[in-house]
Computed example of a mutant assay.
Amino acid sequence: MFMVAPRTAAVLTRCRINRLTHLDRVTGEPLRRYEHPHPGSLIHVDVTKFGNIPDGGGHRFVGRQQGDHNKRTTPGLARSADRNLRTGTAFLHTVIDERSRVAYAEIHADETAVTATAVPRRAITWFTARGVSVERVLSDNGSAYRSHA
């Protein structure tokens, strides 16, 4: 156990660096978090990819035979060229207000530029209906967000 003098502990607490979780592991510098003055000053847009699971569970949970049966009986699964069922991928488009942490999310079958630009438009409409006016939008440099739309 690491012990420090009471005075040192008070100074570290006052500077908000008394816990290792408050420090960057690489540099040892205090973490700097950006904060915004009010809801809507910045919203963050991102996409996460998930594999679809057939109704009743996939083969890793219920076994290969039952998993294949669940695939065949799940409506709406796409078929590949060789006629095998594909569970496919779902793309979760999220829009989060950086101040209040209120989130808006939609699930889509793709992350094309058309979808990626339509989701924030609907999210801004959703936020506006709740009295939040959006000032800025932040996204990563994902391919869907680099379109000219």
Rank of each mutant, 00 (worst) to 15 (best):
T112V: 00
L92W: 01
R60Q: 15
T73E: 13
F50C: 09
T8S: 10
V62K: 10
H44L: 01
P120H: 05
E135A: 12
S147T: 03
V132P: 01
T94P: 10
A90E: 03
K71M: 10
P75M: 07
R16T: 08
I96T: 02
D55H: 06
I124T: 13
F91W: 15
E111D: 11
H44S: 09
N141L: 05
A116L: 09
R32H: 09
R121Y: 11
V4N: 00
E135G: 02
A105K: 03
L20V: 15
W126V: 05
Q66T: 15
P75Y: 03
A118D: 10
H148G: 09
V11Y: 04
A78N: 05
S143M: 14
N18Q: 02
T21G: 13
R121G: 13
A109Q: 04
V11I: 11
F50W: 08
E35Y: 07
R72I: 09
A113N: 12
L77K: 05
R16S: 06
A105L: 04
A103V: 12
T117M: 03
A144S: 15
Q66N: 14
T8W: 07
A129T: 14
G28A: 01
L20C: 14
I17L: 03
L42D: 05
P75D: 06
A113Y: 02
A78M: 04
P37S: 00
G51D: 10
E35V: 10
V114T: 15
K71S: 05
E98F: 07
H38V: 06
R136I: 00
K49S: 07
R79I: 14
A9I: 09
H59Q: 09
T89H: 15
R60S: 14
P30A: 03
P37V: 00
V62P: 04
E111N: 14
D82R: 06
I17G: 01
Q65W: 09
F2G: 05
R14W: 09
K49V: 11
G58T: 05
R99F: 11
T8L: 13
E135K: 08
W126H: 05
G58E: 06
R16Q: 12
F61A: 15
G88T: 03
R72Y: 08
A149I: 08
T13P: 02
E135F: 00
G58F: 05
F61C: 11
F91P: 13
H69N: 06
T8I: 08
E29M: 14
P30G: 00
D110T: 06
P6L: 13
